[in-house]
Simulated assay, not measured.
Amino acid sequence: MRKTIFGFAAVCACGAAEAQSSVTLYGVIDTNIEYVNKVGEVPRSTNNFNSGQGQKVFRENAGGYSGSRWGLRGTEDLGGGLKAVFVLEGGFNSDTGTMQQGGRVFGRQAFVGLGSRMGQITVGRQYHSLFSTIANFIPARYATQYEPTALIVGPNFREDNTVKYTGAFGPLTASAHWSFGVGTSLPQVSPTIPAAGGTGEVPGQFRRDTGYGAGLNYVIGPVGFGIGYDQWNPTIGTGNGTFRKAAVMANYAFNSTAKVMGGYRWGQNKAPDGTLLLRDDFYWIGGQYQATANIDFTLEYNYQNVKSIGGSSNFANPWQIALIADYRISKRTDIYLTTAYSRNAGLTLDSAANNYASSLALGNSYTLASGQTSMFGAAMGIRHVF
């Protein structure tokens, strides 16, 4: 249950008038037991970019259906239709008690802003516009376990030093953002794909590690449409690359229990000198079905058409199919089974084409072992929302 504290007073030392406000403590604890086959190591220079021999893995994970997290969110009524807002949210490993996102206390989100009838402007660490736009059009809703989030929207989907606008106008929702320094770093995982990213905000280097994008959602009756764009300019060597993504998407609700959705994402990554590092097309389709009041299913199929990677077109196109079955014991507690099968890449479609970003971020390898062409994984877990 979310714990809400009401009636905080905005009172200065000289005795200013009180303003109505609220602060909410919330979170999710999600832990599961998982089996995965044919698991290798993330390729690096230390292992000569060789993922090694495949292994079967049995392990306990934090975050399967949702990433384990805790946070604070609050609002204050400033009068005249204006309000102050903030969110502080940190991810943690429920299996070990350690912090995620590189040990950041509030690594998932940390922002403050102002909102009115015209929209909301927030500043701080937050999700970029393409991530927010696709959220309602992706069947698994970015479920942590096997969702190829970093491949769909980029490993920079959370960005530091960001100014973001979000506005809702009837059936239309619009968002746009600018990051002065994204704060995402990708190591070298292939001889032909260099390390990228950094902290940004360096004097005299305005473009360094910046990012920007925008998105639009439009929902009318049972039909929804979306379009979004994202650009990240990561440091590569002594210059800045240009990583671009654009997507279109749609969904259709047959009734209150069944919905189908799908989309297409175009991607292009270039080095500072214009050399093409990656060109790919990504497609997804699937649906959500609520079988009973307590049971629902999610099915999602993903396909990546890798046209060029590191100057080569000799790359087998990865695909993955995933199924989630969820049973709600109560309003706040559920148990779930999630499974996935991938070809030509590891689960979450981790490969050199996304710099193995999911494996590196999760701390659990889904790298496909050397000489293997498929991977299967399954996990059963419990999730509690408070």
Rank of each mutant, 00 (worst) to 15 (best):
P187N: 06
G167M: 07
M249Y: 11
Q268P: 02
N93P: 04
R343A: 14
Y252R: 03
A196C: 07
P234T: 11
T133R: 09
A247R: 14
Q109A: 15
P139I: 00
G267W: 05
F180T: 11
P222Q: 01
Q100L: 14
T367P: 04
L216H: 04
G67N: 12
Y356S: 05
G183K: 13
I324A: 14
A361F: 15
Y366I: 00
L186D: 08
A340Q: 10
A17W: 02
A110H: 10
Q145N: 09
K56L: 06
C12N: 13
M375K: 06
Y35L: 11
Q320D: 10
F376A: 06
A340E: 07
F297G: 04
A19Q: 15
A143Y: 05
T298R: 14
G71V: 01
S45P: 02
F282M: 12
P203V: 10
F243G: 04
A357E: 05
G286W: 00
F106V: 01
L360C: 00
Y303N: 11
A345H: 11
D230M: 05
A9L: 03
S22T: 07
G97H: 12
S116V: 01
G67Q: 12
F206Q: 11
A110T: 12
A247I: 02
T75G: 05
T149S: 12
S51T: 01
S359V: 05
F58Y: 13
Y264V: 14
